[in-house]
Design a protein around this nucleic acid. Structure first.
Lengths: 231, 231
DNA sequence: AAGAAATATATGCTTAGACATATATTTCGA
DNA sequence: TCGAAATATATGTCTAAGCATATATTTCTT
């Protein structure tokens, strides 16, 4: 139902882009068709622009090719095309991503020091801190995707209290008179840390496999875990 | 033909984006329909996501709304969404820029410590170090533009030797037997530092006024200054 | 409150996408 | 050159998008 040639050009451009993405992934039309539930012959038609494909099919094809369709204001088209052509296109980051990533590095360093303190007195706790340190550094290394940045900042803020408490407890460690409270308090702090660490690991995995893989941003898993732990 | 909920979400997102774009333009469904040759009732179905619109229709609707429908690598989504939310192009950074900026921060910290050591024994030298510290931190604050990143890294490398020498000299300061050599050596190190500091200041100024203002990266000014100092 | 404008929903017809299956043609690798 | 793999094209069936038209419902403005 297209009316003029610029729309025909756009249509052909999308067909070409899909084909190029499939070839970059080293997939055959057969393999792609199996992935999205379309026959190879239909993939061929789509890539050659001889079928006016529906949006639902486009979305699935894009997903299978680790791409996304986006509706953009026309003014941004030049910038976005530059980003796509740029050698370091996947290495561009927003200020929020950078700052969140810096904060994660600091967290990792802080937790690394704290872990050394607990290495002998509480090996299980030290393991928990080691896992948190790894999650923080790994996520920092690949940068926090924009849509997780606010959530990661919230996690970092939430971690302040238990980590401070752990530092204080470590200083009390030699004070024998507090032994019972000490152990209980220690367990509480690690119980608070664990779901946050699990969530950072989830985000790190989502970042590694493409930022939109997990579709539900409402109740983060660490809150579900908190509820489980309270049971 | 969509298979899982993340694709339904994407589908609804595009429907919402079309409606939002129409409303931003102050158009009715009737007017948009007339523009693209579709009945108002069909526009309503498209915007509510109750029809699986074909690519040709989507392209025409996007055009009429001054939008483009674009296929992007998933990694670019965060950046593109930032652009759409109004983050300016200049808030996006490459990995190289980020790493160079981190290195500048470290330089600034190192130089700040060194400056304290020379504060009483060599106030002129301390002033030079203070200026270098300021240049490094100011440039780090606004991020090193891509086209200066290699040069800045070179400057940082070149600064290693004179700064190390200054650290060593400071430790020798109380050794009276080396007084003549000490003063000569001190002056040599500051003479080596000064043009590099001047160049960092130039780059900081260029960065402040827009990364592309100065177009000539061939003979950095600090090499010109070195030749002047030898005269 | 009332009327106009805008949007959502219904009905019906035509055409084409989705999908299955088969086969022709081209490309690739040994 | 030859066979396998990949892609393009053909045929057929079913379902739904595109489109026309009408009407119900909601929203907006006075």
């Amino acid at each position: 139902m297209m009316q003029d040639t610029s729309e025909h050009i756009k249509y052909a451009e999308i067909a070409r882009a899909l084909k190029a993405a499939r070839q970059r992934k080293g997939m055959s039309q057969q393999a792609l068709g199996e992935r999205v539930g379309l026959p190879q012959s239909h993939i061929s038609k789509i890539e050659s622009g001889t079928v006016d494909v529906k949006l639902s099919s486009l979305i699935e094809l894009a997903r299978a090719l680790e791409m996304e369709f986006v509706l953009l204001p026309r003014q941004l088209l030049g910038v976005v095309e530059s980003l796509q052509r740029g050698a370091s296109e996947s290495e561009l980051y927003t200020r929020l991503e950078i700052e969140t990533t810096d904060a994660l590095k600091k967290l990792g360093d802080t937790v690394s020091q704290l872990r050394r303190r607990y290495e002998r007195s509480d090996p299980d706790g030290a393991d928990e801190l080691k896992a948190l340190d790894s999650a923080a550094h790994e996520l920092a290394r690949q940068f926090v995707p924009q849509q997780y940045a606010q959530e990661v900042r919230h996690i970092l803020t939430t971690l302040n209290n238990p980590l401070r408490a752990l530092r204080n407890l470590q200083e009390l460690e030699s004070d024998i008179g507090h032994a019972a409270n000490y152990r209980t308090n220690l367990n509480e702090q690690f119980a608070a840390i664990r779901p946050l660490r699990l969530r950072l690991q989830q985000i790190r995995n989502a970042a590694a496999h493409g930022a939109h893989e997990r579709a539900s941003p409402q109740m983060p898993a660490y809150r579900l875990d908190e509820e489980e732990d309270n049971a």
